[in-house]
């Protein structure tokens, strides 16, 4: 059996090994992605983010359980931060999902955010899981920073998790997450201020491309509200499928991905050129302030006939 067949038939060992190849962007990984590409695009990708402490992991576990109840197969990608110094990481999001570990229709993979390319890595891991036949792929993000947005951007449905707040203004406004969420969750809804947070939130969010983001109240620890949350996710999925925007949006994504790959290639090509001494004079001049970097770039552009 070749790789594609093994992936398509759900061989976990192959799947797991391939994810590692894809994660490290190896030749083997790229080769496999080329072959698997035509089998992708069937899974619905759900990104889940929220600040640390809002109960994300517990909620993800509940969502997966609910999906399994509906007999939907699930892939999970859990992203955890890594140390910028050692590259080491504790990947502990699984703790909350371990009771799902043995379900043959669930595949959970922990990823560290070590590389600055975690957005792309995640996208490719999703493709592998997608080709392996998972119906829904849930990505759990770290909950902070640019890395988070990069990861979230690969999701079809973006779920933002909040918890009741006592302050007058919802913190998420600062993080800019109010512009991108498709579904908002107020978790720990049994806490004080839940209703108030909800009404503040509903004032703050706006219709986008014909979709008014839904707000769902949940208590992840007991599972309350999770059914509604999953309904909301599927409602958004249906909206995407019905709307002409889906193809338009995906076309944009494809365009930016191809451009990104091109840029990456060009970059590599330039670095190769620079490694032989051809332009070293120019760089020396820039360093010695005899030339500015903009002029230097123009010079090289001309030289290369770009």
């Amino acid at each position: 059996m070749d790789l594609v067949e093994r992936i398509r038939s759900g061989n976990k060992r192959t799947l797991s090994k391939l994810i590692t190849e894809v994660e490290y962007d190896t030749e083997t990984g790229r080769e496999a992605l080329r072959e698997l590409y035509k089998y992708t695009g069937n899974a619905h990708v759900v990104g889940i983010t929220g600040s640390p402490g809002v109960g994300k992991s517990t909620l993800v576990a509940r969502i997966v359980k609910e999906l399994r109840k509906r007999e939907i197969s699930v892939g999970v990608v859990a992203v955890d931060p890594s140390s910028p110094f050692t590259g080491g990481a504790i990947l502990g999001d699984r703790i909350r999902m371990q009771e799902l570990a043995c379900d043959p229709e669930v595949f959970i993979r922990s990823v560290s955010s070590s590389a600055g390319t975690v957005g792309r890595t995640t996208k490719n891991i999703i493709r592998v899981l997608d080709a392996a036949g998972k119906d829904v792929i849930v990505i759990e993000t770290i909950g902070a920073g640019q890395v988070d947005l990069d990861v979230l951007n690969v999701a079809d449905t973006k779920v933002i998790v909040l918890m009741p707040e006592s302050g007058d203004e919802i913190q998420m406004i600062k993080a800019g997450l109010l512009e991108i969420g498709d579904v908002y969750v107020i978790n720990k809804a049994d806490l004080e201020n839940a209703a108030r947070t909800k009404s503040q939130l509903s004032l703050a969010i706006k219709e986008r491309d014909g979709w008014i983001p839904e707000i769902v109240m949940t208590i992840a620890t007991s599972g309350e509200g999770v059914e509604k949350l999953v309904d909301a996710i599927f409602a958004h999925k249906k909206h995407l499928e019905d709307s002409s925007n889906l193809r338009k949006g995906r076309l944009e994504a494809v365009k930016s991905e191809v451009v990104e790959i091109l840029v990456e290639k060009l970059k590599m090509r330039f670095y190769e050129k620079f490694s032989n001494a051809r332009y070293s004079d120019i760089f020396e001049q820039v360093l010695d302030k005899e030339l500015d970097p903009f002029t230097a770039a123009e010079l090289i552009e001309k030289e290369e006939g770009l």
């Binding site: 992991s57 517990t58 576990a61 504790i90 502990g92 999001d93 703790i95 909350r96 620890t221 007991s222």
Partner: peptide, 10 residues
């Protein structure tokens, strides 16, 4: 009552 799951604290 449900069951408790530990936090990831290492």
């Amino acid at each position: 009552f449900g069951e408790y799951r530990e936090l990831t604290v290492v």
